[in-house]
Amino acid sequence: MKPGAGLRAYALLYLLFLYAPILLLPVFAFNSGTIIAFPLKGFTTQWFTQMFENASLRQALGNSLTIAVSSSIFATCLGIFAARASTRFDFPGKGPVMGLIMLPLVLPEIIVSISLLVVLLSLGVQLTVLTVILGHTLICMPYATVILSTAFNSLDRSLEEAAYDLGETRWSAFRLVILPLVMPGIISSLLMSFTISLDEFIIAFFLAGNEPTLPTYIYSQLRFPKQIPMIMALGTMLVVLSVILLTVAEYFRRRGIAKTGATDSGGFL
C-alpha cells in the first residue's frame, strides 16, 4: 500500500463532507417537486424563472451588488494604505495599530453589528444600504490587508530605490513600478472583498433597515416552505458566482506571485 493511502482516503471523504450540502443545491434547484425531499420528481427550470421574475429579489440583488462593489473598493483602498504602511515602514505603535485593523477578523460579527447599530441609532442615522457598506468595509478591510501585504511583501525594496535612482519621483515610482507589480494583489483583494460582502448576512441583517440584500432576503423567505425551491435556485447561483470569483481571484494571486518571481506558499490565509 502506498504510504498515506489511508490519509488520502480520509481527506477525500472529508472533502465530500465539506461539499455534500452544497452539492444538494443544484440537485433541488432543478427538481420539479415543491418540497425538498427524496425521491426526486422531474427536471425543471421553473425555480430559476420564478427567481428572475421576482421583483423584491431583483431589488435585493441590486442592493447586494451596490454594497459589494462599494465595500470591496473602499476596503481595498484602505487595505492598500495598511499593507504599504506595515510592509514598508516602521512607526511607533505599529503592533497595536495593525492589531486593531485586523481585529474584525476574530471579533464575532454579532458584536460588530450590534455595537455599530446602537451607535447609529443613537446618532439618529437612517439605516440604509450605506450603513451596510460601512460595516462590510470594516470586515473586508483585514482580508484586503492580508492579501495586499503578501503582494507588497514580495516586492524587493530596492526596486523602488532603483526607480528613484533612475530619476522617478515618489509618486511616479509608485505608479510605474509598485502599482503594476501589486495589481494582481489588488484585483484579488477586490474580488475577495466582493465575495465576502455578497455572502455576508449578520451585518446586513442588523444594519440594512428595510433594504433587503440577497442573504437577508433568503433568510426572510426561509419561513415559507413554498419559496424554498426558488431559494435553492438562488443559492445555486450565489455559490456558482462565488466559486467563479474566487477562481479568478486565485488566478490573479498566483499570477502576481509568478510576476515578482517568488514561490507560491499557497492559500488565502
Partner: peptide, 14 residues
Amino acid sequence: TIPFWTSYLIRVFL
C-alpha cells in the same frame, strides 16, 4: 477553502 467562502447562511440553511 472554497466552501469557506460560499455563503454561510446558505450552508447553515442547507
